[in-house]
Structures are given as C-alpha cells and as structure tokens.
Nucleic acid binder design. Structure first.
Lengths: 147, 147
DNA sequence: ATATGTGCAAATGGTTTGCAGTGAG
DNA sequence: CTCACTGCAAACCATTTGCACATAT
C-alpha cells in the first residue's frame, strides 16, 4: 500500500494546482481516501465525514470525489447495479477481486494483465487507454459460511 | 459468431422449460438478441421491436431481457454511467473492447484471460465465479477522426 | 473582496414495480 | 379457463444540478 501521507500530500497539491479550495469537509474526504484500503463508497465516506462535520451533504462528497477522479487522484470502480466504490491508494487502473458474499474488494498483484492488454490491442486494433477488470466470487471467509 | 438459429432455438427452449410464455413481443426480443452482434442496449431493442409492435413498452423489454439474463442466455455488460448492453451470441463472460469515441463494442479472441483468472484466484484465495473485463480506448476508425 | 464551495432540494436517467386489463397455454 | 404477460404510470436510487448563502484565499 502506498504511504497515506504521500497520497494526502499529493491530493492536496493537485487540487491546489487546479485552483480548488481546501475546505474542512473537503480535507476530511481526502484523508479518508488517502488512507483507505477498503474501497469506500460515497455513502460510507459521507457517514464518516458527518461524524466530524454533521451538516455535510452528500453533494459535497460527490463534488470532492469527482474533483479527485477528474484529476486521476482516485480510481472509480463503477458497477451497474450498486454504487461506485473508490480507490485513493492506487489511483490508476488495476484488477480487482470482488466478493459477492460480503462486498469485500481486494487488489491482487497481477503480472499477466499487461499481456492481456497487449493481446486485446493487437486483436482489435484499438488504442487502449484504460481498463476495468473485475473478478467476482467468494472470498475465503464467505466460502466457509453456510449460504 | 454462433449460429443465430441455434441461439434462438436455445433461448426459446430454455424459457419454455422454465414455464414462460412466448408472446409475439417476447419472440421479437429473442430474435434481436439471438442474431445481434453489436451488443444492443434495451433502448435499441425497444426501438426495433416497436417497428413491428408499436404499443410495446420498455418494461416488457426489460422483463424479457432479465428473464434471459437469469437463465444465462444473454450476457449483460453493465456500466456505471451509461445503460447496459447485451450479448446474446456469447452469453458467457468474455473480455470486451469498448470504443470511447463511437461506443462500438467488440469481442476479441483472448487466450491469456484464463491465466489471469488463475492468477487472481491464487493471489486472493477467492473462488472466482465470473468476471467482467473491459478495455476502453479508440477503435481504428475513431483513431483516424479529428477529436 | 470575490469567486468557489456548501447544503438543501429538486431534477435526472436507467431500471423496477404495482396493478388492471389482455392473451398464450 | 387461468395465470403469466403487457402497458402504463409511479416508484426507486445513485448521482447531478440549481441556487442562495457561507467562506477560503
């Protein structure tokens, strides 16, 4: 995992460079994303920020998250049905394993992805810019639970 | 591409087995999905069906598509922002290349995906059941167009 | 001082649902 | 003849937007 301090500093730096202001609510969101390892949703971030800033609105969380997304300082994991989850630690595309039992999302090391991307490019003639690779299944804990 | 006739017959067979009725609207949807190679959206299917059955509603299209999805006779490509697209030709998970210029979706051959899935499983301990692998970029035509 | 950010509420858009009437089996 | 299906409209839910007020710079 990337050093949270570095990520936070980097996020602040990039937002300032783009002329954005650093409000207390916004800083709270950055801190959560910089250190989080559990791919939080906007709703989760919202609940956490509200512990310190009870008047914060969902729109503000979306605002900040979208700022970071546009600046490529957070990676959005967008699903069709459920709400998006965010990765502030490794803000570049990488594969994810998603547990359909408990919703846990983990980032495995994946050496063979690069080869797959090359194969896709040569097969299709596409100029690939990014990807979204999700593997769904049951994590170890959920395999042990009775369904 | 799989023989459309076989796919249509298979879809009809499976729905009948599950005790579902074959209405004219429903048959029209099956035909579109069985032969389509362009991963249509519900909206696209809807417009096409309405050419023959002008009173058809969107809900009916969703109904039929969901029936097929539950029966694993169609693959849903679900995106966070835009609407889902459907693959009735190869109704099992496989990688896709999506053009961010024109929206074209193609199914390349991809030998190295299996290895990636294995790597994910051994890295995470997950029991992988399915996956969703999207590569985004520009198709050949869109690479040539001025942005 | 002055935009930018905030909080609220309303709007959006894809998808689902409830229900009375219709039609496939 | 019956029960699943249709069409319509309303409901849903995550996310976005409009706007008056507040505040970081």
């Amino acid at each position: 995992m990337t050093d949270p301090q570095d990520r936070l500093g980097q996020m602040i730096r990039v937002l300032k460079e783009k002329g954005h202001r650093l409000t207390p609510q916004r800083l709270a969101v950055l801190k959560i994303l910089a250190k989080s390892v559990d791919h939080p949703s906007v709703e989760t971030i919202y609940q956490t920020v509200r512990a310190n800033f009870p008047t914060t609105s969902l729109a503000t969380i979306y605002n900040t998250v979208n700022l970071l997304k546009d600046a490529h300082e957070v990676l959005e994991l967008g699903f069709a049905n459920l709400s998006s989850r965010y990765d502030g630690n490794k803000p570049y595309p990488h594969p994810h394993a998603i547990c359909t039992g408990c919703g846990e999302i983990v980032d495995p090391e994946c050496a063979s992805l690069e080869g797959l991307a090359q194969e896709m490019a040569s097969q299709t003639g596409f100029h690939i810019t990014h990807h979204q690779v999700f593997f769904f299944g049951l994590c170890r804990k959920c395999q042990g639970r009775k369904s």
